[in-house]
Computed example of a mutant assay.
Amino acid sequence: MAETQEVEAPGRAAKDERRAAKLARQIGVFAKAHGGAEGQLAYIGERGTRIVLVGEDGGWGDLVARTYEIAQKAVEKAGITLHEDFDGDFAAKVETGPYEWKRMAGIQIGG
């Protein structure tokens, strides 16, 4: 039986590298604005991988990478600490304000 190999499309590696570099720059901007940052990667299916960012000041945000590998490269290039899970001390760093509480309450009551 013949073995099959996945053939990478020409230029795909270069595109993925550029995507990772762009995400790394965006992570760096976030980190600079928030006194540093830590992150966690969450696979979100066909859409890709979510890069959750939490700043030292409690600010938070996220970015989406096309693949888990691109997200991982971006975080490595940015040089931030990466957590396996979004729980415990890491989750406790997130500060929410009136906007988030109002939005969460609206979702709970169907708004």
Rank of each mutant, 00 (worst) to 15 (best):
E3P: 02
E3W: 06
T4A: 14
E6N: 13
E6W: 11
E6I: 13
V7Y: 06
V7I: 06
V7T: 08
E8R: 11
E8L: 09
E8G: 00
A9D: 10
A9K: 09
A9G: 00
A9L: 14
A9T: 05
P10Y: 04
G11L: 05
R12Q: 15
R12A: 15
A13M: 03
A14V: 14
A14H: 09
K15G: 11
K15V: 07
D16A: 12
D16F: 10
D16R: 09
E17I: 11
E17C: 07
R18V: 06
R18Q: 15
R18G: 15
R19F: 14
R19P: 01
A21H: 09
K22D: 07
K22M: 02
K22L: 13
K22N: 02
K22W: 06
L23Y: 01
A24W: 10
R25C: 01
R25S: 08
Q26K: 12
Q26E: 15
Q26Y: 06
I27S: 08
I27D: 12
G28V: 04
K32S: 15
A33C: 07
A33L: 12
A33G: 13
H34K: 11
G35W: 06
G36P: 12
G36T: 05
G36R: 05
A37S: 04
A37V: 08
A37F: 08
A37I: 03
A37E: 05
G39V: 04
G39Y: 03
L41R: 02
A42W: 03
A42I: 13
I44L: 13
T49G: 00
R50H: 09
I51N: 10
V52K: 11
L53N: 10
L53T: 04
V54P: 00
V54S: 03
V54L: 01
G55E: 11
G55M: 11
E56N: 14
D57V: 07
G58A: 04
G59T: 07
G59S: 15
G59I: 01
W60E: 14
W60I: 07
L63K: 08
A65K: 03
A65D: 09
R66C: 10
R66L: 10
R66P: 14
T67F: 03
T67Q: 02
Y68H: 15
E69P: 07
I70P: 03
I70G: 02
A71W: 02
K73F: 05
A74G: 14
A74L: 06
A74T: 06
A74N: 07
A74S: 07
V75W: 06
K77G: 01
K77E: 06
A78T: 00
I80M: 13
T81V: 13
L82H: 00
L82M: 12
H83N: 00
H83S: 03
H83M: 01
H83Y: 04
E84K: 05
D85K: 04
D85H: 12
D85M: 11
D87E: 04
D87V: 04
G88C: 03
G88S: 07
D89A: 12
D89E: 15
A91I: 09
A91G: 05
A92Q: 13
A92S: 11
A92D: 15
